[in-house]
């Protein structure tokens, strides 16, 4: 069985320095968006999905586990945050915490169940679990079924930042994204991340070296799910609603697509992929269901000819890890 990513370059101080430079450039570019006249709503949406895709990538790119149900964390955190903000009237920072806590609990439960099977079965189980949750949310009273939770108040973050102002909201979302991204970056380059990569490359060998691989995979799953929940909570402030779309399997598919386009197992790939896919949806919104067809075609083309993804190809060309 060939590994998902074929370029496993060693983590050297130089590689980390390269990645930090790219990170700083990315942060500066994103921070300058409000001055460029680019529609901030689009970028905020893309940032939320970028964080979601990064969290997903932590699991597949570094743990070798393809979750086909990551929308459940996005949607659950969204519902929890929305409920906390609207019904309990909590301030934004606590609303985000409630969402993250919801996703954390969910990832504990689903991780405990799904980690019992590997490979292809893991994907099918996560997909089935997210569908189970979809039906529960469809019938549960607090989600308001097909209508979703709408008109969520944005409020004042820490009592100071007025989130109803687009620019303020943009920087709050950006800071949230960068914090999540740095955390993932830190996890990948930690000893824990190294063990994950070892498990991805050769699980029996990792076991024979004395690692309890199930515990590592479980922890990776919980981290990934919780961070995906963080993305879901941020998204509530941007979209001002929480709906069933965020829990649907097609959303899980989109996350997979973003990561695949950007590059599985690359640090910056999911971010690029999220921007590409969200931009595509934005510009092709008038074409109705053809968007689905195009997304399907991108899947097919990527798998057949472009498995490294955008960033993966660039990194491969320069023999760097990005």
């Amino acid at each position: 069985m060939t590994a998902l990513t074929d370029d496993t370059l060693p983590v050297t101080p130089r590689a980390i320095r390269d990645e930090m430079i790219v990170f700083v450039v990315m942060a500066l570019l994103l921070a300058s968006v409000p001055f460029t006249g680019v529609y901030p709503f689009f970028v905020m949406q893309a940032l939320c999905f970028a964080l979601l895709a990064c969290a997903f990538n932590l699991l597949i790119g570094y743990g070798g586990l393809l979750s086909f149900g990551h929308a459940m964390f996005l949607g659950t955190a969204g519902y929890c945050s929305a409920h906390a903000l609207k019904v309990w009237a909590l301030p934004p920072e606590l609303g985000i915490l409630v969402g993250i806590a919801g996703a954390f609990v969910l990832s504990l439960i689903t991780g405990y169940i799904s980690i019992r099977r590997q490979g292809i079965y893991f994907s099918m189980i996560t997909l089935a679990l997210s569908q189970l949750l979809y039906f529960i949310y469809l019938q549960a009273p607090f989600t308001h079924g097909e209508d979703g939770i709408q008109g969520i108040p944005q409020g004042h973050m820490f009592g100071v930042f007025d989130l109803s102002k687009p620019t303020v909201l943009y920087y709050v979302v950006l800071v949230g994204f960068l914090a999540g991204f740095l955390l993932i970056f830190r996890i990948i380059n930690s000893p824990f991340g190294e063990v994950l990569k070892a498990i991805r490359e050769n699980e029996p060998r990792a076991i024979s070296l004395g690692y309890r691989t199930d515990q590592y995979k479980f922890l990776a799953f919980v981290l990934s799910g919780t961070l995906a929940g963080f993305a879901g909570s941020l998204k509530v402030f941007v979209a001002q609603n929480a709906s069933l779309t965020d829990v649907h399997w097609s959303m899980s598919g989109e996350v997979v697509l973003m990561t695949l386009v950007g590059g599985l197992g690359t640090v910056f790939g999911p971010v690029v992929g999220a921007f590409v896919i969200i931009a595509m949806q934005q510009y092709l919104a008038g074409f109705g269901q053809w968007v689905t067809v195009i997304q399907g075609s991108i899947f097919v083309i990527c798998v057949l000819t472009f498995r490294r993804g955008v960033i993966g190809e660039i990194a491969h060309y320069f023999r760097r890890s990005l």
């Binding site: 490979g119 292809i120 689905t292 067809v293 997304q295 399907g296 075609s297 899947f299 097919v300 498995r307």
Partner: peptide, 18 residues
């Protein structure tokens, strides 16, 4: 890796259904 088969056929399903 088996996962690529899943991704490819998922793409085909999206195309056909779309």
């Amino acid at each position: 890796d088996h996962l690529y088969g899943l991704l490819l056929t998922f793409g085909i399903a999206l195309i056909v259904q779309g």
